[in-house]
Design a protein around this nucleic acid. Structure first.
Length: 709
DNA sequence: ATAGGGTTAG
């Protein structure tokens, strides 16, 4: 279902409902097109009903509606908006409708010098240090009378939210002066630190009851607290309430709310708010851009990231460190390592010194992109320039080494960490090392690490467990595998779908007793999956429709990233147990459930089979299927392209190694005229003439192995 | 220090 803004904005919407409200159909593409155009459409006027009722404080929903309608309408059917706008809109005597106040809330003047400050600081320290049960008694020792200034100073110094509340209530009970908004705001700040949304909301209601003014600081504190507690509906609710009472958000509250919608993934709402704010004359600051950049990064939306850069440029805002960090991270998520690299160089050239987060983002990007040269160069620059390093960055460097297969570099860093006082390896560090040894097939070193962990008291986590099991499975050390699995489960590891996929892949290449041992591990983690394996291979009479339904059920309860591996392994299991037809059925189901997008690509000149993301068995199955289809086409004498190719990938990824070789021997066995391309490894090509004559000589055989639907 | 908004790990 499409997101509907009126739903998102809650109950405040209903009274201004009109028939031009429509659900959002705001796709990424459309957004980008509309926002990238250099000329921004002038903001449309608010609906006349809103102007009449609340010309000063139109509701947020009313503010957003016309804009979204303008952007989203499928046809330019905006006559109801444009029929009488001029008088309202262009008339300079009327103010522009505005969604935010361009002026920030004015702060009270800072404290004047007070000779009692030193005593009060000491007193606050005593309060912070004492037991909570003694707190009230300690308060009584306050060295100076709790005047407004004195009370504020102490209230500001308390660290735990429980003590803040106790002190707040004590001051209230003294009844020396009425507690103003600032007392509530300071108290809320402490509660927010303790993530106590309910307490904050109670205080807010108390303010309303007493008729105290809730200002922008109050609202932004409430909203960000709700956000940090993941109570997004509450955050939106309080933002709406603010408009309702006639208070306009300033840019701090406004960007806090942008972040709320961004965290909800409501890109279109964020952009409506942003554009509305811009139309009101708002000049967004770096924090607002960090919010947008983060949002587009999470969505992997490169066009959105470009839009942010372009906006900053046109407004004349230089990114600061945080904005650069966010943009780098976003570039990584959008799969643009090269642009991340240039952005980083631009940042350094502009004189900004990278921090741990910058370097963590970049190292991660280079590792994932398998850019060993850039990763190592950056590592060297970190050392030479003395750039800051922290624990997360160390672990990220280790993971990068795992991605790139840099065994010695990782071992050196790992030893450094063991030797340091502050940065002892934790379960993340061990996981990275297990990943390195596991993918390199070094069982001895991997098992040595496993033993070392139990000695040093570092818990194996689910990912480390997966790496180790994969390694032991490949080495056919099934008894060790079972022991590691049992130990992990007893140690509190919760098996996830990746671990199950890993066990399933071990099952695919094991036989007899070994396979049964691994299956009984899998049974503990995912009994349904084991049941399905038995359905596939145990009972030959299980019909296709039953398999289809069960498979659908399994997949829909599996994490997206583990679905294709599951299907690959299941195909391998069927093939290795001589259920070839089942394998074809599973490949067919995997294809219709969208697990293999882009498996076939066709142009007039060339048809290509892309098996890079398939397991060996699945790739064989797909190839046989392809040849079977081809045989039918030849039989029917339909048109064929001049060239056929199959792409296995060159096996640069540590898990896809061997696919090319397996494929080569498979085509050799079938005597199909595919030859590995000389220039490109992992590319197998055949001409139409060769293939057609092969099909004609082998047609009966191919036809029998092909799935008949 | 002295009431409010943004960024790091499969």
């Amino acid at each position: 279902m499409a997101t509907n803004l009126s739903t998102a904005l809650g109950p405040y919407h209903h009274h201004s409902d009109t028939n031009h409200r429509r659900p959002f159909h705001f796709t990424k593409k459309r957004f980008t097109i509309s926002c990238n155009s250099s000329k921004r459409a002038p903001p449309p006027p608010p609906p006349s009903s809103a102007v009449a009722q609340e010309s000063k404080n139109p509701s947020l929903a009313d503010q957003l509606k016309p804009l979204s309608t303008t952007i989203l309408s499928d046809q330019p059917n905006e006559t109801h908006l444009l029929s009488k706008p001029k008088s309202t809109w262009v008339n300079p005597t009327k103010p522009k409708p505005s969604v935010l106040s361009l002026q920030r809330h004015k702060r009270a003047s800072p404290y004047s010098y007070n000779p009692q400050i030193k005593d009060l600081r000491q007193f606050a320290k005593k309060l912070n240090d004492c037991e909570e049960s003694d707190f009230v008694a300690v308060i009584e020792g306050i060295p100076h009378p709790p005047t407004r200034e004195n009370a504020l100073l102490v209230l500001n110094s308390l660290k735990s939210w429980q003590k803040t509340i106790l002190f707040f209530n004590w001051v209230k009970a003294q009844n020396v002066f009425p507690l103003e908004t600032i007392f509530y705001n300071v108290t809320m700040k402490s509660l927010r630190f303790g993530r106590q949304f309910q307490h904050i909301e109670d205080l807010a209601f108390e303010m309303i009851e007493k008729g105290l003014e809730l200002d922008n600081i109050t609202y932004s504190t409430i909203i960000t607290c709700a956000k940090r507690c993941n109570l997004f509906d509450k955050a939106v609710e309080w933002f709406e309430r603010m408009y309702k009472t006639g208070l306009m958000p300033d840019e701090v509250t406004y960007s806090a709310v942008l972040d709320v919608y961004a965290k909800l993934g409501k890109v279109e709402e964020v952009m409506s708010l942003y554009e509305r704010g811009r139309a009101s004359g708002w000049k967004p600051d770096p924090i607002a851009f960090a919010v947008l950049a983060k949002m587009f990064g999470e969505a992997g939306d490169f066009d959105g990231i470009r839009y942010v850069l372009q906006e900053m440029k046109s407004i004349g805002i230089q990114p600061n460190l945080v904005v650069y960090n966010t943009l780098l991270e976003a570039m990584g998520k959008a799969g643009k390592p090269g642009l991340a690299r240039s952005l980083f160089e631009e940042m350094v050239d502009s004189g900004i010194v990278p921090n741990e987060k910058t370097l963590t983002a970049l190292i991660k990007i280079y590792g994932r992109a398998r850019w060993a040269r850039d990763a190592l160069d950056l590592w060297e620059r970190m050392r030479v320039n003395g750039w800051p390093v922290d624990f997360i960055l160390y672990n990220t460097l280790l993971s990068m080494c795992a991605d790139l297969g840099l065994v010695e570099e990782a071992e050196r860093l790992f030893e450094d960490m063991k030797g340091s006082e502050k940065r002892k390896p934790d379960s993340w560090s061990y996981t990275a090392m297990l990943n390195i040894y596991g993918s390199g097939g070094n069982v001895e070193k991997a098992m040595a690490l496993f033993k070392e962990m139990s000695k040093t008291g570092v818990d194996l986590n689910v990912m480390g467990c997966t790496c180790l099991i994969q390694c032991l499975g490949r080495a056919k050390k099934i008894d060790d595998l079972v022991r590691v699995f049992e130990t992990s489960i007893n140690g509190g590891v919760k098996p996830d779908d990746r671990l199950c996929g890993c066990l399933l892949s071990v099952v695919s290449y094991c036989e007899g007793e070994d396979a049964d041992k691994v299956l009984s591990c899998l049974e503990q983690a995912n009994p349904k999956l084991v049941e399905f394996v038995k359905l596939l291979c145990g009972d030959e009479s299980a019909n296709f429709d039953v398999v289809k339904e069960e498979f659908k059920r399994i997949l829909s309860s599996t994490a997206v990233e583990a679905r294709r591996p599951f299907c690959n392994c299941l195909i391998d299991i069927c093939r290795n147990r001589n259920f070839h037809e089942r394998a074809h059925e599973l490949l067919y189901l995997g294809t219709i459930y969208g697990l293999y997008p882009g498996l076939h690509t066709k142009t007039d000149e060339e048809w290509r089979l892309n098996v890079r993301s398939l397991s060996v068995g699945a790739a064989h199955t797909a190839f046989e299927e392809w040849m079977g289809t081809l045989a039918k086409i030849v039989q029917r004498q339909e048109t064929l392209p001049a060239l056929f190719s199959a792409n296995t990938g060159a096996g640069t990824h540590k898990f896809s190694q061997g696919l090319g070789n397996a494929f080569a021997s498979h085509v050799e066995k079938l005597a199909v005229p595919f030859r590995e391309s000389e220039g490109k490894s992992g590319f197998f090509v055949a001409t139409r003439e060769d293939l057609v004559s092969w099909v004609q000589s082998k047609a009966p055989l191919v036809m029998t192995t092909a799935c008949t639907n």
